[in-house]
């Protein structure tokens, strides 16, 4: 009897475990055939914010003389050039990106524009305080501007200047066939309060030399 009882108990436990595994299989199959697309969508959404930090050595910024394009672009927030305007005593680092955080340290390069040497529109921005672009409104037509990038040196000559509304995006035409440097800062520079205008400088390329 004792053995019979043991056998009965074991039989019942085994039966319950087998049934449980069977139920798990059915439920997983139902979920797979009915909900798998939705589940994968949710997983993809979560994976978009799951960013692994990898120890990668980023390649140096280099210029391709054939395609006239950079081979590897500067990382966001990284310095890749200096801006030199001797006529108004400006010598500032240029960083990739133009957020307010980046512009605390120098000139920001608008990432939607091209880079010096690429033959199109280049847009740089800087704060209007002293030590930055406070004296930009004093720049004159014909003044020289030099950008010393890690891959080459580029010289520009001021063609014109304008005061524009802060929301005037048409003041920044996007050229692909001629290299135009546009530098802007908040305007007016010597008032306090919210600046509703920008002082914009247009300069054409007059010289270049590339790093070997």
């Amino acid at each position: 009897m004792h053995k019979k009882n043991k056998r009965n108990i074991l039989k019942e436990i085994t039966e319950q475990i087998v049934i449980s595994f069977f139920f798990v299989s059915i439920i997983i199959l139902i979920i797979h055939f009915v909900f798998i697309d939705k589940i994968n969508n949710y997983i993809n959404i979560v994976n978009m914010i799951s960013i692994e930090e990898k120890d990668i050595t980023y390649p140096e910024v280099k210029f391709d003389n054939v395609s006239k394009r950079l081979k590897d672009y500067p990382l966001w927030g990284k310095e890749f050039a200096t801006l030199d305007i001797p006529s108004i005593n400006v010598n500032l680092p240029v960083f990739q990106g133009d957020t307010l955080d980046i512009m605390r340290y120098g000139i920001g390069h608008y990432s939607g524009s091209l880079f010096p040497g690429e033959g199109g529109t280049i847009i740089l921005a800087g704060h209007n305080d002293r030590g930055f672009l406070y004296h930009l409104p004093e720049i004159k037509v014909g003044d020289k501007i030099t950008i010393n990038a890690v891959y080459g040196t580029f010289t520009y000559e001021v063609e014109s200047t304008r005061v524009i509304d802060a929301k005037d995006n048409d003041a920044f035409p996007f050229y692909k066939d001629k290299e135009v440097l546009m530098i802007y800062t908040c305007y007016p520079v010597n008032t306090i309060g919210h600046k509703t205008h920008r002082f914009l400088v247009y300069a054409k390329k007059v010289g270049e030399s590339y790093e070997k």
């Binding site: 307010l100 955080d101 605390r104 800062t185 908040c186 010597n190 306090i192 919210h194």
Partner: peptide
């Protein structure tokens, strides 16, 4: 605080 500082800088204040 950081955003405030970024906004104040170009304002002249």
């Amino acid at each position: 605080d950081n955003d405030f500082e970024n906004y104040i800088r170009p304002s002249g204040f």
